[in-house]
Write a protein that binds this DNA or RNA. Structure first.
Length: 425
RNA sequence: GGGGGGGUUCCAGAGCGGUCAAAUGGGGCAGACUGUAAAUCUGUUGGCUUCGCCUUCGGAGGUUCGAAUCCUUCCCCCCCCA
């Protein structure tokens, strides 16, 4: 199955320029996607671009991951309703390094004709003078052409700085540079990148007469219309410091049925046959949630490793299984700590607990589980608070008999939100 | 420059002298049902020393026993005419 067909059945194909397929048939083609280092970790939204590169490589072509050290300094207006604030240079350099490290895990960088490479547009942009840029790049495209781009049009009402307006030229130049220096003939990205990509293709055509291509994938959506990859806590990051492996695993495990059918095609490398079979099985026995489990396993293992995945599964079992207060008390401390790794932790003086703390004070004052006493009372009224897996309904006093291992109290707000309270002497 | 309309609790949007911590919808959170899904239904959605009190309706003053509601002034948005 060729690359384009592969993307098509996976639902990862939005649009491509005429001739793209022929080019890919004709020869081993080098293609790139750009990632702007706006943070020091990738999030799962980036995973889509990375999977495109992965499929490209599996189809025998050569993937380039472009870290946008230069473009990241400017800010892409695509899909943004407001001007972006600039990141400091040292921040960007740090982010680049972190992102590079993460990328190494997903593609094959070993020797071979189509081994993956990471490039950074800062390397070729940093010494490019303003006048040089105007003469070499700006001269070849008209304002009229640039204004016609959606990303620009949408911002004309609300305002767009010259800097962001210029973004497409900088990205366009990247394409030109990679075309000349790496024989790169295809640029890929999310559908919001179409305008930026075609600017590059146009620049290459006018400057060199060369023919290059574009391919985009649709924006990933959720069935309920919300933005993909966001939770109440914000983005789902690959870096375990920002999103614990447990939460990462839970994110995928919690996908709705409709979404998982879609995501398993996009985020795993399972074959069409395997996926069709899984979907069929899932429809037969939906309560087993084979789709979500397979999806979560596949991605978590690839991002965090098998070992960490196992821990996340074990933790989930304890937290969501038929775990009772007794079970909780029986867990050895090291397992206990692994299970609750990444769960918000509050420290309370041992004396406060041994003296007996009113549940409302305990939730709102001694810990920050509730934002105010009013909220704490509401939670209790709703019946959404559990301590050590035991529902708390009315006024209770929390004392040392609640401590697990003489140290911990497990508090739940609703089914999914866990908090750990540690007594310190 | 002239004329008109607005700024309300997370958002949209009512209220236009007391009964307003403020309708309704959305969103958020929770409960029930389930499969840690979807849909649905229910509750809840300023704070506190909670049968009461305090802070909120663009900012600052004022009228009044009493103001989100009236007056003055300032700031900001939108529309129309020049």
């Amino acid at each position: 199955m060729n690359f384009v067909e592969e993307l098509r059945w996976r639902g990862m194909l939005h649009d491509f320029m005429p001739g793209t397929e022929d080019q890919l048939q004709k020869e081993m083609t080098t293609a790139y996607v750009g990632i702007d280092p706006t943070a020091d970790s990738l999030h799962i939204g980036h995973l889509v671009s990375i999977m495109m590169l992965k499929h490209l490589q599996r189809a025998g072509h050569k993937p380039l991951a472009l870290v946008g050290g230069a473009t990241g300094m400017i800010g892409d207006p695509s899909g943004k309703s407001e001007e972006r604030s600039l990141l400091s240079e040292e921040e960007l350099r740090r982010n680049e390094e972190a992102i590079k490290k993460q990328l190494l895990r997903f593609l094959d960088f070993d020797e071979g004709p189509n081994h993956a490479e990471i490039v950074n547009n800062y390397d070729w942009m940093k010494d490019f003078s303003f006048l040089g840029f105007l003469r070499e790049v700006g001269k070849h495209l008209t304002i009229n052409y640039m204004l016609a781009k959606d990303s620009v049009k949408k911002r004309l009402e609300t305002g767009l700085s010259f800097t962001e307006f210029t973004y497409q030229l900088v990205q366009g130049y990247d394409y030109l540079y990679l075309y000349k220096n790496k024989n790169c003939k295809l640029q890929m990205g999310g559908s919001d990148q179409w305008g930026n990509i075609t600017t590059g293709a146009e620049l290459i055509r006018r400057k060199t007469g060369g023919e290059v291509y574009a391919l985009t994938c649709p924006l990933i959506t959720k069935a309920d219309g919300n933005k993909f990859g966001k939770t109440e806590q914000g983005n789902v990051w690959l870096d375990p410091r920002y999103t614990s492996p447990y939460h990462f695993y839970q994110f995928w495990l919690n996908c709705s049925d409709t979404d998982s059918e879609k995501y398993i095609r996009i985020f795993t490398l399972l074959s069409k046959e395997e996926i069709d079979k899984l979907i069929e099985e899932h429809r037969q026995e939906p309560h087993k949630r084979m789709l979500q489990k397979t999806l979560a396993e596949d991605i978590t293992v690839r991002v965090h490793g098998r070992q960490t995945y196992e821990t996340a599964v074990e933790a989930s079992g304890i937290l969501f299984g038929k775990g009772t207060a007794e079970a909780l008390h029986k867990i050895p401390e090291d397992v206990f700590l692994a299970v609750f790794e990444g769960v918000p932790l509050f420290e309370v003086a041992y004396d406060t607990i041994s003296q007996g703390a009113d549940i409302v004070d305990f939730l709102a004052e001694h810990t920050g589980i509730a934002k105010s006493k009013g909220e704490a009372r509401r939670m209790l009224k709703e019946g959404s608070v559990s301590i050590n897996k035991q529902k708390v309904l009315d006024a209770t006093t929390v004392d040392e008999t609640y401590l697990i291992n003489q140290k911990y109290i497990v508090v739940q707000r609703g089914k999914k939100n866990y908090f750990l309270v540690k007594a310190k002497s």
